[in-house]
Simulated assay, not measured.
Amino acid sequence: MNDREATPADAAAIDALFRESFAATFAHLYAPEDLASFFAGFTVAGWTGELASPDFAFRVIEDGEGLAGYCKLGPTSLPVTPEGPAIELRQLYLRDRAKGSGAAQTLMGWALATARARGAAELWLSVYIDNHRARRFYQRYGFEDRGPYAFMVGNHADEDRLMRLAL
């Protein structure tokens, strides 16, 4: 696997991976109209804008079949009160074929190094309460549970957990 900085040219591939991965993991939880409403908030143009913005940082990981995963950092948007300069791990998504390959660790290593390089003192994220694999992954890096968060998918409120890592 090869990882690299993402560029605006990656927007369509990131959008496709995001939709595939999110649906594979969570689609069974939602009414089709809620999932469609949620996905409508993500467009290739939106991804392109974020990829071109200095406020965001993206890393992709590729294998012989193409894009296998990505990680996105951005300004804190969660309902948290940081104790110092903070950044948010907005997304870390992998295709099924990349799970267990070390891709997640590669992307997390990049996220931690990038957050520190940008002067962040803490890194925040939210994770679905029943996504036990992801929660264990983040806990191994020292993320601490900081309470509940209602993550909206259309009109459906999921219970997520806010997690914080002091850098």
Rank of each mutant, 00 (worst) to 15 (best):
L35R: 10
L35F: 15
A36I: 09
F38I: 10
F39K: 04
F39G: 05
T43D: 06
V44N: 07
G46M: 08
W47Q: 04
W47V: 01
G49I: 04
G49T: 12
E50H: 12
A57E: 04
R59D: 07
I61Q: 12
D63C: 08
E65D: 14
G66K: 01
L67C: 02
A68E: 07
K72E: 06
L73E: 01
P75A: 13
P75W: 11
T81M: 02
P82R: 01
E83V: 04
G84Q: 02
P85V: 01
I87F: 02
I87S: 06
E88Y: 08
Q91K: 15
Q91A: 15
Q91H: 14
L94N: 11
D96A: 15
R97Q: 13
G100E: 06
A104P: 09
A104Y: 12
T106A: 15
T106K: 14
T106Y: 08
L107A: 14
M108V: 12
G109I: 15
G109S: 13
G109Y: 11
A113I: 06
T114W: 05
A120V: 07
V127W: 03
Y128T: 01
D130L: 01
A134G: 11
Y138N: 08
Q139A: 10
R140G: 08
G142H: 04
G147W: 07
G147Q: 11
Y149C: 04
G154K: 10
H156W: 13
A157R: 14
D158S: 03
E159Q: 13
L162A: 03
R164A: 13
A166M: 06
